[in-house]
C-alpha cells in the first residue's frame, strides 16, 4: 500500500523534474543560438533559404486552414448572434477571435507540425549521419551554420504566416456571412473596425506569434541537435517537437493573454 503511494508520488516528482530540466535545457540552448547568430545576419542568404523551407512551404496549409477556420467562425457566430438580433456583429466576432487567439495559436500549431518537425528531422538526420561532426571538424560551428539560420528562419516566418492566417480567416468569414448569408457588407466591416484596436488586437496578436515562433523554433532545433543519432532517436525527437511545441504554445498563450488583459484593465 505504502509502496504504491510512494511509487506514484515518485513518478510525479520524476516527471516534474524532467519537464523542468527540459525547459531549462531549451532555454540554455536558446542562449547558445543567440550567441552564435552573428553568421546568420552577416550572411542573410542562409536565413532566406530557411524562410523558404519553413515559411513558403507552409503557405498552402496556412492559407487553406485560415480560410476554413474563418468560414466556420462566420457560420457559428451567425447562428448564435442571430438569436440576439445582432448578426451584423459577426464580423467583430470573427476578427477578434482570429486576431487575439486563433490566428497566432492555430498557425503556430500548424507550423510546429509542418515546419518544426521538418527542422528537427533535418538536423537530427545531419547529426545521425555525422554531418554536424564533419562540419565541426571543418572548423565551422554547426550552431552558427546549421542551427541558427533555421531558428531565425522560423522566427521570421511564423508572424508572417499568422498574419496571412488571420487575413484569410476574415475573408472566409466575409465569404460565408456576407456573400452566402446576406449579412450587410457595410455593417460587417464598420462594426469590425469599431471593435478592433490596432494596438491591443493586431499588435498583441503579432507579439504572440513572435513569441510562439521563438518557442517552436528553439524546441525544434533543440530536439534535432540533441536527438540520439539513430533512426528511432530522430523519429522520437520529431514526435517530441510536435508534442512539446504544442504544449508550449498553449501554456505561453495563457500566460501572454493573462499578461495582456492585465495591461488593459
Amino acid at each position: 500500500m505504502k509502496g504504491t503511494w510512494g511509487h506514484g508520488l515518485r513518478t510525479v516528482g520524476d516527471t516534474t523534474l524532467r519537464i523542468v530540466e527540459r525547459i531549462g535545457a531549451v532555454v540554455l540552448f536558446l542562449g547558445q543560438i543567440l550567441r552564435h547568430s552573428g553568421t546568420s545576419f552577416r550572411r542573410f542568404g542562409l536565413v532566406i533559404r530557411e524562410i523558404y523551407f519553413a515559411g513558403v512551404q507552409s503557405l498552402i496549409i496556412i492559407l487553406v486552414s485560415g480560410l476554413f477556420v474563418g468560414m466556420v467562425l462566420g457560420l457559428q457566430g451567425f447562428e448564435t448572434l442571430q438569436s440576439y438580433g445582432s448578426s451584423e456583429s459577426v464580423g467583430v466576432l470573427v476578427a477578434l477571435s482570429l486576431m487575439r487567439e486563433l490566428g497566432p495559436v492555430v498557425s503556430a500549431l500548424l507550423f510546429a507540425s509542418r515546419a518544426g518537425s521538418a527542422i528537427t528531422a533535418e538536423i537530427g538526420l545531419m547529426k545521425a549521419t555525422e554531418q554536424l561532426s564533419a562540419m565541426e571538424m571543418m572548423a565551422v560551428n554547426p550552431l552558427a551554420r546549421v542551427v541558427s539560420p533555421r531558428f531565425w528562419g522560423g522566427v521570421f516566418s511564423l508572424p508572417v504566416l499568422a498574419t496571412l492566417f488571420v487575413a484569410m480567416g476574415i475573408m472566409g468569414g466575409f465569404l460565408v456571412t456576407v456573400i452566402m448569408l446576406k449579412v450587410d457588407s457595410g455593417a460587417f466591416w464598420s462594426q469590425m473596425q469599431a471593435a478592433v484596436d490596432f494596438h491591443h488586437d493586431i499588435v498583441n496578436g503579432m507579439i504572440k506569434s513572435i513569441v510562439f515562433g521563438v518557442a517552436v523554433s528553439a524546441i525544434a532545433t533543440f530536439e534535432g541537435y540533441e536527438a540520439p543519432p539513430t533512426a528511432e532517436g530522430v523519429s522520437g525527437a520529431t514526435t517530441r517537437t510536435v508534442v512539446s511545441s504544442s504544449l508550449a504554445i498553449l501554456a505561453l498563450d495563457l500566460l501572454l493573454t493573462a499578461f495582456m488583459m492585465k495591461g488593459w484593465n
Partner: peptide, 27 residues
C-alpha cells in the same frame, strides 16, 4: 528562385498586415 519566392512570401505577409491594420483595425 529561392529569393523570388521568399520575396513573394514577405510581400504577401506585408499586404495582409496592411489589410488588417487599415481595413480591419481602422488604424
Amino acid at each position: 528562385t529561392l529569393n523570388l519566392w521568399v520575396g513573394f512570401f514577405v510581400l504577401l505577409g506585408f499586404v495582409a498586415f496592411l489589410m488588417l491594420a487599415f481595413k480591419v483595425g481602422n488604424l
